Simulated scan of single mutants.
Amino acid sequence: MPSHTTPCIVVLSCLLLLLSLSQCQGLLSPTFYNKTCPNALNIIRTGVNQAVSRERRMAASLIRLHFHDCFVQGCDASILLDETPTMESEKTALPNLGSARGYEVIDDIKHELETSCPGIVSCADVLSVAARDASVAVGGPSWTVKLGRRDSTKANHTIAETLPGPFDNLDTLISSFANKGLYARDLVALSGAHTIGQAQCFLFRDRIYDNGTDIDAGFASTRRRQCPKNTGNGQLAPLDVVTPNSFDNNYYKNLLQKKGLLQSDQVLFSGEGTHSIVLEYARSPQLFEADFASAMIKMSEIQPLTGQNGIIRKVCGAALHSSI
């Protein structure tokens, strides 16, 4: 064979190898279900809108559920798996007991998807799309969700216990996010999800009773009325006291006034490296929404299972009744 044809053969071989690898590993794509389940996005959006119309707080819960999933072992729906005799669920980890909810909304959506196109849409993709649709449902930004994630067969309770929490200092938060490939700006932007939703009393009690200098005295006094010093752990307070049911940038304006409900909120303004970002978002809701959407996309693509990895669960809480 003439020597001048060798480079062409090598190039062709490389292309075939790359094609084989991409098919094996799988690639996320916004059109992933266009042929196999063309109504998937409509089904998810309808389910989210119905849930949020019943309870406005559910929008925040669905966004948080996606966050708590992706930060454990990637966006693989491991947070949805129920306890079994041989596996400890992430649901029972302390950070999830305190704030993760909305499982039934995902279950209902998945049931509709299984009726329409059985064994096709992963629970991990449902979580990713539901978080986007929850943002839109309360006036927040939209973004393009790339699809094709598959579901894990195991949960990781141990890692779930280390999720970023409301008592963390800034260094811990920055480190936790950096470990997932997210920067300080992503941390501040994603924390803006606290412009909606509520927190339980035990998560902010220490902050409103310690008479610190990083909390407005009037704000602390008001919060104490619904959060007694020794009782009422489950009493709820809005994370954004001004517009608790609307997605806007008031969360950051609250931080400027030392009215962040959680310690992990207020440290964003008091800490070096994030202070200026809080100021930016307080001044520009457009910048906040753009950065929030960008950060949500980055978070939704943390270590996804694709291609031949993972499974497609038919029931999001169980790995046994699944499609390969």
Score class of each variant (00 low, 15 high):
A137S: 04
V138G: 05
G140N: 14
S142A: 12
S142L: 12
S142N: 10
S142D: 04
S142P: 02
K146S: 05
K146N: 15
K146H: 15
L147I: 07
G148C: 08
R149V: 00
R150Q: 11
R150S: 13
R150G: 13
S152Y: 02
T153Y: 08
K154E: 13
K154P: 08
K154D: 11
A155V: 01
A155E: 05
N156C: 15
H157G: 15
H157S: 13
A160I: 02
E161Q: 11
T162K: 14
L163R: 11
L163S: 09
L163W: 07
P164S: 03
P166G: 00
P166R: 08
P166F: 09
F167I: 15
D168S: 08
D168I: 06
L170H: 03
D171V: 14
D171E: 13
T172D: 09
T172F: 05
T172N: 04
T172A: 10
T172P: 12
L173N: 00
L173R: 03
L173F: 08
L173V: 05
I174E: 03
I174G: 05
S175G: 09
S176H: 14
S176F: 09
S176E: 11
A178L: 11
N179G: 13
Y183I: 15
Y183K: 12
Y183S: 06
A184D: 12
L190R: 06
S191Y: 14
S191M: 11
S191T: 07
A193I: 10
H194Y: 04
T195K: 02
I196E: 00
G197C: 00
Q198K: 11
A199H: 13
A199R: 11
A199S: 08
C201N: 10
L203V: 02
F204W: 08
R205G: 06
D206A: 09
Y209R: 02
Y209S: 04
Y209D: 02
Y209L: 00
G212N: 15
G212S: 05
T213V: 15
T213P: 05
T213K: 07
I215L: 06
D216G: 01
A217L: 01
A217G: 04
G218P: 03
A220F: 00
A220V: 06
A220Q: 00
S221P: 06
S221W: 01
